[in-house]
Simulated scan of single mutants.
Amino acid sequence: MLALAGAAGSTFAQQTLVVKIGHVAALSGGAAHLGRDNENGARMAIDELNAKGVLIGGKKARFELMAEDDAGDPKQGTAAAQKLVDSKVNGVVGHLNSGTAIPAAKIYSDAGIPQIAPSVTNPKYTRQGFKTTFRMVADDAQLGGTLGRYAVQQLKAKQVAVIDDRTAYGQGVASEFEKAAKAAGATIVKHEFTTDKATDFTGILTSIKGARPDVVFYGGMDAVAGPMIRQMKQLGIKTKFMGGDGVCTGELPKLASGALADGEVICAIAGGVETAQKPGFDKFKADFKKKFGAEVQIYSPYTYDATMAMAAAMVKAGSADPAKYLPVLASISHPGVTGTIAFDEKGDIRNGALTLYTYKGSERAELAVVR
């Protein structure tokens, strides 16, 4: 539990301790809606912490969110990380993308500042050996692997085409999907490449059409997946479309401009809540919509939980000094809206969940939560 200022009435208890929490995400570009969603989750936690009047080491803490835009670009990501380090933040929640979080992790590590990534799924992120690096969700090995097995075992796919956008995230999840699909008995008939800014896929989709796949898997984000699905329909490619969490958003039907058939897309997000967590999770979504006038996209509950877990570690350590609360964070067991927040020796979330979805009409429909 977080200690509250109201629990102590001494003058010392009322001294204010400013705690700076950095947040970095793509707030511009194709993933801006996801970046804003993440930032709002952190902002919601900050506002709640300040309303409660949390005590850290006997001082009333005032939390401040320092938000930066990395535009999903690795160079901007490292520049944003350095800016937060120079500002002497006490901790960082972010980044949104694997491609920006992986290089930024070294900057935070060198400065000794804890970093909790709410939505980063590339396994490399926590394989760099940094003690400051933590992840809130299952990684691509689990996510891509689960989707690859699902394609063969549930969708009965024998021939599979793969497309990735050459980003750290897109390549990572596509590679894991391909490995699992092959291991389950599928043949990879095509592996094509695009970019995270492409808009015309006629060439690669024509090539894929000739290979007659049962499933097309795309490793990348919804801003590219939507137009790709629309162009598949124009070319008469009638097959299941699969993707990871970058595809699996509330915006996908809109981005596909009405080309999404019911049950056509199967995707997964890293994370998910089971029956016991549903009431708290639903309350979070309702409170979020009331506060920001927007639906939860994907990962705002995880930025919220990351921020709360970081604050809980500071309270338990009696200090917001990164060197003092870092060991407490590494061994934390914090009850969050997404489940218990606890990390393994690499900094990965313990017992991470995945949620499989499809789309019906313009709504995302849950298929199953798996671990």
Rank of each mutant, 00 (worst) to 15 (best):
T100E: 01
T100Q: 03
T100M: 01
T100G: 05
T100F: 01
T100R: 05
A101R: 00
I102D: 06
I102P: 05
P103Q: 08
P103M: 09
A104V: 00
A104K: 00
A105K: 04
A105H: 01
K106T: 12
K106P: 05
I107W: 01
I107Q: 03
Y108T: 02
Y108F: 10
Y108K: 07
Y108D: 05
D110A: 06
D110R: 02
D110V: 04
D110S: 04
G112P: 02
G112T: 01
I113M: 07
P114T: 03
Q115A: 04
Q115R: 04
I116T: 00
I116G: 00
A117S: 02
P118K: 11
P118F: 04
P118R: 09
S119P: 03
V120Y: 08
V120I: 12
T121H: 00
N122C: 04
K124P: 00
K124E: 12
K124V: 12
K124F: 06
Y125F: 14
R127Q: 15
R127D: 15
R127G: 14
Q128C: 14
Q128E: 15
Q128V: 15
F130E: 14
F130P: 10
F130S: 10
F130W: 14
K131G: 14
T132I: 09
T133N: 07
T133D: 06
T133G: 01
F134V: 14
F134W: 14
F134D: 08
R135S: 15
R135I: 15
R135C: 15
M136R: 10
M136K: 09
M136D: 12
D139E: 09
D139P: 06
D139Y: 12
D140T: 08
D140C: 05
D140P: 06
A141P: 00
A141F: 07
Q142W: 11
Q142R: 11
L143R: 11
L143M: 13
G144Y: 10
G144R: 02
G145F: 13
G145E: 12
G145C: 10
G145I: 10
T146C: 13
T146F: 10
T146N: 12
T146H: 12
L147H: 12
G148V: 09
G148A: 06
G148E: 08
G148R: 07
G148F: 03
R149W: 07
R149I: 06
Y150S: 05
A151G: 05
A151S: 07
A151V: 04
A151Y: 03
V152M: 12
V152T: 09
Q153H: 06
Q153E: 14
Q154N: 10
Q154L: 07
Q154S: 13
L155A: 03
L155H: 08
L155W: 09
K156T: 01
K156A: 04
K156G: 00
K156I: 00
K156D: 02
A157I: 00
A157W: 06
K158P: 01
K158E: 13
Q159V: 00
Q159G: 08
Q159R: 15
V160G: 07
V160E: 11
A161L: 08
A161F: 04
V162T: 08
V162E: 06
V162K: 02
V162R: 02
I163R: 09
I163V: 13
I163K: 11
I163S: 08
D164R: 11
D165T: 04
D165E: 08
D165F: 09
R166H: 12
R166A: 13
R166Y: 08
R166N: 13
R166D: 14
T167N: 13
A168V: 15
Y169T: 05
Y169L: 12
G170Y: 00
G170I: 01
